[in-house]
Design a protein around this nucleic acid. Structure first.
Lengths: 243, 243
DNA sequence: CGCAATTTTGACGTAGTTCAACACGTGTGG
DNA sequence: CCACACGTGTTGAACTACGTCAAAATTGCG
């Protein structure tokens, strides 16, 4: 709280430092007077507000890891033909650019969807800091392991889903699960982006997406108004997701 | 080499400790005399041969990370209805069960496909060891970051691929890339499992898979005999993969 | 409030999956 | 040696799910 500078904006969900996944990395800051001074010089933890701008882009030098504090990010890849493909989303408490640890350059784009805040951790400084504080490294290890599981679960949820229905259901459930960490309600979900972006990500057309949403509403699985989804029948949705 | 006990078996591809992704973790073993004795007592690096048996199963206590030395593993998940879903494969040089760092129990099955060898790193021992040797933790961090990228790339390669053709092409390319690390040829690929398993993983039937393989052969993209694939037209395959 | 952008709905055609049945090669045991 | 099972590949016919085109409805923004 004291270490995070928060810029209040309407309609934006923030997570506390307490529920941020990066917290164990930042935690040593609060330890003792002497430690704080050491850390301050090395691990510059800043809160940046970006509005619909890229956090980083393909081929850019990978020199920092980011943790999302508020808002959402979309990750995209540019195909050889120049088409943009949405390869994922990141929500508060999740990491972006953790590849930086071993990759010289990022190989995807991370762009803010609306107003967002992130914590930036400089890689060099993290390394320096890690040498002095082994606990920091342990935290980072745990963090990466968590992110790892998140990725695997996301992968698992969409792989082998041939029908658009099961794919969308799985996608919604995945979003729901990931948002549950910082959202108070288990049954509500705010879509961070428009239909086009979601359709792009899932690999079908805007119209198809719209139709399936309608179908889900008819079935009483959920209700949707603009970008706000309310889950009405979770088990039903899960049934659809499992083929 | 000296630290890995290898059991020679026919038709099995092995990777050296030198090209194993776990190597940086094991490396300190070779550092100095004194260090070796310390490490030996903590980080018990063993080479285990498993034949078509599960390395671990769902809900089992997660107490170790594994690195594949030879052979292949398939990762599966059991759906609520009891159906087995193949959620991925792991090849020599890749990690299995890295979730163990933060999860009390594994949430998927890892079963050996044919004869395999793995290096097992006990979590408790890794932690103990990490306290004494910060470099070990740095290695682990890098390792996890790499595995992270691998997962994201795998995800990226299959997401938004609605047509079976582009999905299979992307799958083959992904396998090719991952096998290039320990295989001498860039154009040949040995499928570790049968058509059914692959079809399960990609989400369609054996027939569809067979049809597309035939189509790819007709197009001159590749030739396939049983489980041995030879890539004839890499750019062509890439075209198919990108929708 | 009004215009533009986004979303929804409808009708229609086609590509691709699925189902079912068969053909082929291989290993196994009587 | 043949019968049998099993894994794999092939083929044809039916269907349905998705893409396409077009237009209406809704939302959001200035």
């Amino acid at each position: 709280m004291t270490t995070c500078i928060k810029v209040k904006q309407p309609k934006t969900k923030y997570i506390d430092c307490d529920s941020c996944s990066m917290q164990p990395v930042c935690l040593p800051l609060k330890a003792g007077k002497t430690e704080i001074s050491i850390m301050d010089s090395y691990l510059s933890k800043r809160n940046i507000v970006t509005i619909s701008t890229p956090l980083f882009q393909e081929k850019e030098k990978a020199d920092a890891i980011y943790a999302v504090c508020s808002g959402s990010f979309k990750l995209t890849e540019t195909s050889p033909e120049g088409k943009e493909k949405v390869i994922g989303f990141r929500f508060p408490g999740e990491l972006i650019g953790e590849d930086a640890i071993h990759t010289p350059n990022y190989n995807y784009n991370a762009v803010a969807v609306g107003n967002t805040t992130v914590c930036r951790v400089d890689l060099d400084e993290l390394n320096e800091c890690g040498k002095l504080m082994p606990e920091l490294q342990l935290s980072l290890i745990s963090l990466l392991s968590k992110q790892n599981s998140m990725l695997r679960e996301e992968f698992t949820s969409v792989v082998a889903k041939h029908t658009a229905e099961s794919l969308l259901a799985a996608f919604i459930l995945n979003m729901l699960k990931r948002n549950a960490q910082y959202q108070e309600t288990e049954s509500k979900l705010h879509l961070p982006v428009g239909r086009d972006v979601i359709a792009n990500h899932l690999g079908f057309r805007r119209e198809t997406l719209s139709r399936i949403f309608s179908k889900f509403q008819q079935k009483g699985l959920l209700s949707i108004q603009a970008k706000d989804v309310e889950i009405l029948d979770l088990p039903g949705l899960q049934d659809v997701a499992y083929n």
